[in-house]
Design a protein around this nucleic acid. Structure first.
Lengths: 143, 143
DNA sequence: TATCAACATACTGTTATAATAGGGAAACGG
DNA sequence: CCGTTTCCCTATTATAACAGTATGTTGATA
């Protein structure tokens, strides 16, 4: 599985914020109820989004979270990559990983690089704003 | 990680067979040595390939494994899909999985379907024969 | 019939996932 | 200033998959 609940839930949180925010802060409790996701689990996910400055939080009454920038400036691929650590389809292509000693003679490496690039291109071609549209505009992947 | 060692090793085994077979059976021990993979672990992988009739085995002296059909008839996507169980990028798109009750209202489903389709197209555009070529012909994914 | 190699089953250490539990710190409203 | 609200922080845990290891059995060949 390329994408776990971390990446999936993070996207849903961002979309929810984009659709419900009138520049006000939204309580995590509300998002959790709308999305039917455990509030406590969402906390750990939103925490990452705060660290990455995708989202800002405010404590106390009237507090909550909101997007730190317009939804059309948040690239889906970026969100998924840091929530998952990496979107590399195979271990040998992970950013942090040591290069495989067999790389020079590897028959499959070029194939994996191509798959990695294909995934990158697709995920980077969408912003959170694209996903808020219900008419599915922007989904031109069907040739 | 979309692809584990199961899928990666399976591909390497098939490529190895395609490159070293003169229609003779190849010992798993030889493949394991060339590929630097544990012979015992390879057994569990090749077993799946036999079940799927990609490879045939022969016991006893002079025995081993060989491809059951020409390398250019073995689609990489097929091999990866059954070795990994699924290549779906998210749980909600797995063949066996029950459909998500939120599917009708899900903002992200179309996005995931597009990613799934993108991965399928790429992996289905290669055969094992393509990967045996050292000149990387066929890798036209770079536009 | 001895050998060789595929076939079969069971077990194990490690890691990631998907949470849950419980409290602490800051901001705002009154 | 005080108490409620809401974010923030640190464990802990159950489950499952991954990546192998170990041991033994069956069947073909020379």
């Amino acid at each position: 599985m390329l994408i776990s609940t971390k990446g999936r839930y993070a996207l849903r949180v961002l979309i929810d914020m984009a659709e419900h925010s009138g520049n006000e802060y939204i309580k995590l409790k509300d998002i959790a109820e709308r999305q039917e996701i455990s509030e406590k689990y969402l906390e750990s996910i939103v925490k990452q989004l705060v660290i990455r400055n995708i989202v800002v939080g405010l404590r106390g009454k009237g507090g909550g979270y909101k997007l730190s920038k317009p939804a059309d400036e948040i690239v889906v691929g970026d969100v998924l990559r840091f929530m998952e650590g990496s979107l590399a389809p195979v271990a040998c292509l992970e950013e942090s990983g040591a290069t495989c000693p067999r790389a020079a003679e590897c028959r499959t490496l070029t194939f994996w690089r191509g798959l990695d690039e294909t995934i990158r291109r697709y995920t980077d071609s969408f912003t959170v704003a694209d996903l808020t549209r219900t008419d599915n505009a922007g989904f031109d992947y069907i040739i």
